[in-house]
Nucleic acid binder design. Sequence first.
DNA 1: ACTTTTGTACTGACCGGTCAGTGCTAAAGA
DNA 2: TCTTTAGCACTGACCGGTCAGTACAAAAGT
Lengths: 188, 188
Amino acid sequence: MSRAETRSKVFAAAIDLIAEQGYTATTVDAIAERAGVAKGTVFYNFGSKEALFTALLEHSIERLAQALREAAVGESALAALDATVLGQLTFFEEYGAFARVLLAEMWRTAWQEAVAKLRAEALGVYAAVLRRAVEEGLAREDLDTDTAATAIFGMVLTVTIERRALHPERPLEHTHRTLVELLHGRLR
Amino acid sequence: MSRAETRSKVFAAAIDLIAEQGYTATTVDAIAERAGVAKGTVFYNFGSKEALFTALLEHSIERLAQALREAAVGESALAALDATVLGQLTFFEEYGAFARVLLAEMWRTAWQEAVAKLRAEALGVYAAVLRRAVEEGLAREDLDTDTAATAIFGMVLTVTIERRALHPERPLEHTHRTLVELLHGRLR
DNA sequence: ACTTTTGTACTGACCGGTCAGTGCTAAAGA
DNA sequence: TCTTTAGCACTGACCGGTCAGTACAAAAGT
């Protein structure tokens, strides 16, 4: 078996288990067993439990950021915002376990480096769209776009997890419509 | 010392440590030391680490729900919504460690009972306000108020934690204005 | 008297990390 | 052609430390 294959099997096992139990509660033994490899193999490939996790975070954040960048297009800033929300929903539809991991571990000081990357690359997409909205006169000029970006990101993240846990059969479109409704001022 | 006093000292120590390190990584020894009691006292009062944590969750969720219920008043549904958001921000301003704990542990299957209570009592306040908004014709009739309630709650929670971690000096009002701006359709 | 707390010592399960060794393939040497 | 060596990926038993929980006797509170 190639090294890359082994690594991705371990990644998949680790993300599932950590999503269910959290980082600390997940043992390397359990990850190895779920991945179908020996415990030593995990250490051979990643060096340590923590290194495995940081590699996993790095890799997943990169993919998330790319998905958001690709989604964040639209004629108007408003259309781009809706598209970004849909992009985030769609991404987590496929990588749902990562949503749980992000929410749970995002603010632990241990992974500040990964969090910085998340803020810069993923939240940055929302912030850019919101700045565009301000330029187009769709929002107050002194809107705090960074805080607003975090708010929207967290909103979508929370809803994604609730949906996966409670209504997995519900179409994505339904959730998307509810969020978009909240965001463009039907509430007024 | 009364039993109640001891329990609340242990609660305070536990919530701080668990907010920093997570449930699993926090040891009972550390909780006892921070609380200034003997380790045996913790077990005498709570029986087990898990029982301590569930009691802590239960207790905190009850207080959060009460704070939201008290805050959720206003002439219009829109005013009530703003007030509820401010109520949530204010609550977590005082019990910020609990915000971290909620976000990190909320979706662990282990505490489903506590999560059910959170959904019923805390998210329920948002859901009720949103239903009132629908009645007043401020939102589409088929708005999914449960999903929207989760969305707003998660949004405020995420922003609270970001604020505490990154801009602790910022006045609450600033954050509140940004969120309210997002929620009533200045973006359109 | 009865409840609660303390401090210390202990147990046993568990877990991250290690390491000597296995299996395999392919190049190097004869 | 046959043998040896090299190197990579993987294995799983094992080790040392950690931690929830227990035991208990003495002290403090009420």
